[in-house]
Simulated scan of single mutants.
Amino acid sequence: MEKYEGYDKHSTKVFCEAFNIGASSFKHKKRRQAALDKVRLSHDVIEEKIGRENFFYTKSKGGLINILNCNIGNKDMNVIETILKIILEEKIVPVQAEYARVTGKSQSTISDHINFLKKNNIILPAPTETVIVSSKETGEILSKYEKKIGDYVYYDITPNGSYVKLDEGNQVFANNMYKKLWTMEYFQIGRMQQKYSIYESDLKGFKTNVNKLVWVKMNEEFNLHNGQRKIIPNINPEVKQQLIEYFGIGACNHGKGTAC
Rank of each mutant, 00 (worst) to 15 (best):
Lys29Ser: 00
Val45Ile: 14
Arg52Ser: 11
Ala34Phe: 05
Leu41His: 15
Ile46His: 13
Gln96Pro: 00
Lys118Trp: 09
Lys61Tyr: 01
Pro125His: 14
Ser108Met: 07
Arg32Tyr: 04
Ile72Thr: 11
Lys119Pro: 00
Lys75Pro: 04
Ile72Ala: 05
Glu89Asp: 10
Lys13Ala: 03
Leu64Lys: 11
Glu129Lys: 12
Pro94Phe: 08
Phe55Glu: 04
Lys27Ser: 09
Glu53Pro: 00
Ile123Met: 09
Ala100Ser: 14
Val102Phe: 02
His28Ile: 01
Phe26Gly: 01
Leu64Glu: 12
Ile21Gln: 03
Lys118Thr: 13
Asn54Lys: 08
Lys105Trp: 07
Ser24Leu: 10
Glu48His: 08
Glu89Gly: 02
Asp112Ile: 04
Val14Glu: 15
Glu81Gly: 01
Lys61His: 07
Val133Arg: 03
Leu88Gly: 01
Gly51Thr: 07
Gly73His: 10
Ile21Val: 11
Tyr99Met: 00
Gly51Tyr: 07
Lys27Tyr: 03
Glu48Arg: 07
Leu84Ala: 08
Met77Cys: 05
Val39Pro: 12
Asn69His: 09
Phe15Ala: 08
Ile72Met: 11
Ile67Lys: 11
Lys61Val: 02
Thr128Ala: 09
Lys91Ser: 12
Asp44Met: 06
Arg101Pro: 04
Arg101Ile: 11
Ile67Tyr: 10
Ser135Ala: 12
Ala35Met: 13
Asp44Asn: 14
Ile72Tyr: 06
Ile87Tyr: 06
Thr109Trp: 06
Ile110His: 04
Ala34Ser: 12
Pro125Tyr: 14
Lys49Met: 12
Lys136Trp: 15
Ala100Pro: 04
His113Ala: 12
Val14Asp: 15
Asn71Gln: 10
Gly73Ala: 15
Leu124Phe: 15
Val133Phe: 05
Thr109Tyr: 04
Ala18Lys: 09
Asp44Arg: 13
Pro125Ile: 13
Lys118Val: 14
Pro125Phe: 13
Gln33Val: 09
Phe116Leu: 14
Glu81Pro: 01
Ile114Glu: 05
Val14Gly: 05
Glu140Phe: 11
Ala35Thr: 11
Ile122His: 11
Ile110Trp: 02
His28Tyr: 03
Ala126Ser: 10
Ile123Trp: 09
Lys105Gly: 04
Thr109Gly: 05
Leu36Asn: 09
Lys61Phe: 03
Lys75His: 15
Lys85Glu: 13
Ile80Asn: 01
Met77Gly: 05
Thr138Cys: 13
Val133Ala: 04
Asp37Leu: 13
Ile65Trp: 02
Leu84Arg: 01
Glu90Cys: 10
Glu90Met: 15
Ile92Phe: 13
Glu17Ser: 14
Ser25Cys: 02
Arg32Ile: 02
Val45Leu: 11
Leu88Glu: 07
Gly51Ser: 03
Ile87Trp: 03
Glu81Arg: 06
Pro125Asn: 14
Leu41Val: 11
Thr12Phe: 05
Val39Ile: 14
Asn20His: 15
Phe26Met: 01
Glu90Tyr: 10
Ile65Leu: 15
Val102Asp: 03
Ile83Asn: 06
Ile122Gln: 04
Gly51Met: 06
Val93Cys: 08
Glu53Gly: 00
Val133Lys: 02
Ile21Thr: 10
Lys29Pro: 00
Leu36Gly: 07
Asn120Ile: 03
Gly73Trp: 06
Lys13Trp: 00
Lys27Ala: 06
Ile123Phe: 11
Phe56Trp: 08
Lys118Phe: 08
Leu36Val: 13
Arg32His: 11
Glu137Phe: 11
Ile50Asn: 12
Lys61Trp: 02
Ala100Met: 05
Ile141Val: 15
Lys59Ile: 00
Ser60Met: 02
Ala126Pro: 01
Lys118Met: 09
